[in-house]
């Protein structure tokens, strides 16, 4: 699905990581952990072509991301549902409109009506459909972001700290939703620093845990 092959990236003259490889195969579940500033968000952004690698190759669905034009990047992103750390909503649109946005921009707005209410109920936001994003709590926003990420039935779901702003109970609920999607065959990549949550989830899904530290991406071991 998504493959990073000996990828390097940095800001200014400083290298954040180099020669980093990652392969997200179909139906896999990955946790990405590591200390703040290690480059987790940057790594995720490389995975959905929001950033371009300095060297190495990023392959999205078998295509070299460096060779994709802007339209092709947009089309690839329709196959990747992203839950952003700060949710990235359009504050002038209702929650229902925000969730339906990927369908709207794909000129598939007509499909939204039938799936939307079901999806809102699935994430427990049926009653908040017509509220604006600033009117929602952190947990509600995270669930709405997850609903938006899955509305296109993408092949890959990438979530950046999806439980960052929510309590333990809500984080468990969100993770169960992601585990459910993985069981439906979706490829999942979650960046988080919440090791308790990873430990709790390992009983539900067969997940690989990767640790990004000092520019190296390593398989987490028994110390987790």
């Amino acid at each position: 699905m998504i493959e990073l092959d000996k990828v390097s990236y940095g800001f200014g003259g400083t290298a954040l990581f180099s020669q980093l490889s990652l392969n997200l195969t179909a139906g896999s579940f990955h946790f990405l952990t590591g200390p703040s500033g290690a480059g987790k968000t940057t790594l995720l952004r490389l995975c959905y072509a929001d950033l371009r690698a300095r060297s190495g190759k990023v392959r999205l669905f078998g295509q070299d991301a460096a060779t994709l034009d802007r339209d092709a990047v947009a089309l690839a992103r329709r196959r990747i549902g992203v839950v952003h750390q700060n949710c990235e909503f359009l504050d002038h649109l209702t929650i229902a409109e925000n969730i339906a946005l990927p369908l709207t921009v794909s000129d598939r707005g007509g499909e939204a009506a039938q799936n939307l209410q079901e999806l809102l109920n699935w994430v427990g936001l049926g009653a908040q459909a017509n509220q604006l994003p600033p009117e929602l709590s952190g947990g509600e926003r995270q669930r709405a972001a997850l609903a938006r990420a899955v509305i296109m039935s993408p092949d890959v779901i990438i979530a950046d700290e999806p439980t960052g702003n929510v309590d333990w109970e809500m984080s468990q609920r969100l993770m169960r939703l992601l585990a459910e999607l993985n069981k439906m065959g979706k490829t999942i990549l979650i960046a988080t620093h919440d090791l308790h949550m990873i430990r709790a989830m390992k009983t539900d899904v067969s997940a690989r845990v990767l640790r990004l530290r000092d520019g190296q991406l390593l398989q987490a071991g028994a110390d987790l």
Partner: peptide, 15 residues
């Protein structure tokens, strides 16, 4: 910011 969000959810430049 609106444009960034639209691009992130898969909007083409034409749209």
């Amino acid at each position: 910011q609106v444009i960034r969000v639209l691009r992130l959810v898969g909007a083409r430049d034409t749209y």
